[in-house]
Design a protein around this nucleic acid. Structure first.
Length: 479
DNA sequence: CTGGGGAAGGGGCCC
DNA sequence: GGGGCCCCTTCCCCA
């Protein structure tokens, strides 16, 4: 095309009823603008203007108090950027129009809020390994999914960097501050879901299959939490999780794996029971050491956690928000801090309550107690085989390895075990001590008899040590 | 392959 | 805040 395009003239005959008329339309040549570029430029410009206004405190109609530090901002911008502010400002109603302090936070630092606010007004998220957790917590508090996703991607890419470059020295320092950009300061919902931040391409060449396949989680929340746990690989959180994955080795007796994974491990161990016995003292020491390290790392993980974050839950009749506590690793919220502490164990993998009969570890004392009563004490007064009620006169406790259960006399005779020696139940006198020790590190000689090794556990199904003991409920008092 | 039962894990809430 | 109880869900094993 040479020169300027010529106008196109079109003649149109319009007939209305019986009469007709001729119209001449002149179509001007189209000028091709990239509307996407215009949009981006406009958004960028608008954001810049708003940011400038914020910095100059022009037209700011909203104040946010964070640990005593006052931030001025625009109500509309906050409303558009944060679910928290959306809820808060919409709750304020007409009275909220007055220029008063609208929100007060003590659950994150002014520095963190500065990062968040800068992101809101610029699309630039200044993340570093030092602030990513707290920024993510704050974003979670403020219900800013896009920021959460950026943080998650930052954490994930940090982990990838570390793992990929483990054997080369090309590891990027996590102390380097990364800056994520949200483009024009706004992103699509799809981007929000997936997180639009792409780590450096080289980082994605690593095969992620291991971490994905070994991930232990039931739902997206836990997946998110797992991502969070993959924080800075130099951090205890990441180390703890990675170590947990490593413990999927079926030979590992620590039972720190959650749920199904551990049960799978348990099954694998049993199958190997006939092939190998491991009484190697070095391995025992390794186990002890690993356990100690794990406990230490759990402590370190707790130490690295951001302050427990309170979130605004539902509003009661007086429009007063009900405080809830939010898990920094997932979206779960609880009413009580103590419940959150308990919940955190499912993220940290901390299992402070070991069963000294089988070495299995539990997150809660009540679970340990329940396990012990069911598995090792045969407290259920029913025959395992026929499910009938068993009394002292009508049944026995059958010992199968460390397991104990009751069977009625008829069922015992039926399975032909009546020639198996009875357990004197002497061991059960020591049982109360089994539940007292947290982490079981202090077991004495009396308890030692119950400190079965992994091999003992493995022998559970062998049936070789099947023992029958007289039912004696008095000996089974736990505490 | 499927359904039932047992064991474990997690949440809510009371004391 | 910790302990404990209750309830529900999930997972695994087995018939």
């Amino acid at each position: 095309m040479e020169g300027s395009p010529q106008p196109i003239t079109v003649q149109i005959e319009v007939r209305v009823g019986g009469s007709s008329a001729e119209l001449e339309m002149v179509q001007q040549p189209q000028r091709w603008f990239n509307t996407a570029d215009i949009t981006v430029a406009h958004q960028s410009n608008l954001l810049k203007q708003l940011n400038q206004q914020r910095r100059q405190e022009l037209f700011c109609d909203c104040s946010v108090l964070v640990e005593g530090q006052l931030f001025r901002a625009h109500r509309n911008v906050l409303f558009a950027s944060s679910g928290y502010f959306r809820m808060l400002l919409s709750q304020q109603g007409p009275d909220g129009l007055s220029d008063s302090v609208n929100a007060t936070f003590d659950v994150f630092s002014p520095e963190t809020f500065t990062v968040i606010l800068d992101f809101i007004y610029s699309g630039q998220l200044d993340l570093s390994s030092h602030n990513v957790i707290e920024v993510m917590s704050a974003a979670s508090y403020l219900q800013m999914n896009n920021v959460i996703n950026y943080c998650k991607n930052f954490i994930k890419s940090s982990l990838d960097i570390s793992v990929k470059d483990e054997d080369s020295d090309r590891c990027l320092s996590l102390s380097e501050t990364c800056s994520f950009t949200s483009g024009a300061g706004e992103e699509t919902s799809e981007q929000q879901q997936q997180g639009s931040v792409s780590p450096p391409p080289a980082l994605w060449t690593r095969d992620n299959s291991r971490s994905q396949s070994s991930f232990i989680g039931k739902d997206s929340d836990q997946e998110a939490s797992a991502s969070a746990m993959k924080t800075n690989p130099s951090s205890p959180a990441a180390e703890l999780k990675i170590e947990t994955e490593d413990l999927q080795d079926p030979e590992d007796p620590l039972y720190t794996l959650p749920g199904s994974e551990r049960r799978r491990v348990r099954g694998g161990s049993k199958r190997r029971a006939t092939n190998s016995t491991r009484t190697n003292q070095h391995e025992d020491l390794d186990i002890q050491e690993a356990r100690t390290q794990k406990a230490e790392k759990a402590e370190e993980l707790y130490a690295t956690l951001p302050p427990i974050v309170g979130v605004i839950g539902h509003f009661n009749k007086g429009s007063n928000p009900i405080m809830r506590f939010k898990c920094p690793f997932c979206t779960h919220t609880v009413k009580r801090k103590a419940d959150l502490k308990r919940h955190l164990r499912c993220h940290t993998g901390e299992r402070p309550y070991p069963c000294q009969a089988c070495n299995k570890r539990f997150t809660r004392l009540e679970h340990l107690r329940s396990h012990f009563e069911t598995i090792h004490q045969a407290r259920k007064l029913v025959c395992r085989k026929c499910k009938c009620q068993v009394t002292e006169d009508t049944g026995h406790v059958v010992c199968e390895g460390t397991r104990r259960y009751r069977m009625c006399t008829a069922c015992i005779q039926e399975v032909g075990c009546d020639d198996i020696p009875m357990d004197s139940l002497e061991g059960t006198n020591e049982e109360p001590a089994l539940l007292l020790g947290v982490d079981g590190e202090e077991e004495g000689d009396t308890k030692r008899s119950w400190m079965v090794t992994d091999d003992d556990d493995l022998a559970e199904d062998s049936g070789a040590d099947l023992i029958i003991q007289q039912v004696d409920d008095s000996d089974e008092e736990l505490q």
